[in-house]
Simulated scan of single mutants.
Amino acid sequence: MPVPDEIKAYERPRCTEIHQVRGHYYVYKTTSVWDRERKRPRKKTLGCVGKIVPGRGFVASGPKAGPAAPAGAPVVREYGCWALFDGLNPGLREQLEEHLGELGVRACF
């Protein structure tokens, strides 16, 4: 099914194309790659960069890292190996601080 002209009229990034998936219009980044066998360029779709919402226009996709932590949520840090080393050698942190400096120790712990 062709994409309607009203959807094509919205502003979107260069080198992109619009695909309709289940009634929604998604914008995909494209590039061309040289095909040695056919001796001509071939289109390659790289991935979704956003979607077009009627009435709003182009909406960029957010980062794929997952949902953001709510404000005030505790920060979790892993320290398993360093907790073991520090338990086996209580002066380890001070010894490392002599050789690496305070910033070096912060990077380790």
Rank of each mutant, 00 (worst) to 15 (best):
V3D: 02
V3H: 10
I7W: 08
Y10R: 09
Y10A: 08
Y10C: 11
Y10Q: 13
E11F: 05
E11T: 07
E11L: 09
E11H: 05
E11S: 07
R12T: 04
R12H: 01
R12N: 02
P13D: 02
P13F: 08
R14K: 11
R14V: 12
T16F: 00
E17A: 11
I18W: 09
Q20F: 00
R22D: 06
R22F: 06
R22W: 00
G23W: 10
Y26P: 04
Y26D: 05
K29V: 02
K29W: 02
T31M: 13
T31L: 09
S32T: 15
V33G: 11
V33R: 14
W34M: 11
D35I: 04
E37W: 01
E37S: 05
K39F: 09
K39M: 08
K39N: 04
R40Q: 15
R42M: 04
R42D: 03
R42K: 12
K43V: 06
T45E: 11
T45Y: 12
C48T: 05
C48G: 09
G50S: 06
G50H: 07
K51M: 08
K51Q: 07
I52L: 08
I52M: 07
V53N: 05
G55C: 01
G57H: 12
F58R: 05
F58A: 01
F58I: 03
F58T: 04
V59D: 12
S61A: 00
S61N: 05
S61L: 05
S61M: 11
G62Y: 12
A65T: 09
A65E: 03
G66F: 00
A68E: 01
A69I: 14
A69C: 12
A73I: 07
P74V: 15
P74R: 11
P74H: 08
P74L: 13
V76T: 04
V76S: 04
R77K: 07
R77L: 03
E78V: 10
Y79P: 08
G80K: 15
C81S: 12
A83C: 07
L84I: 10
L84E: 09
L84A: 06
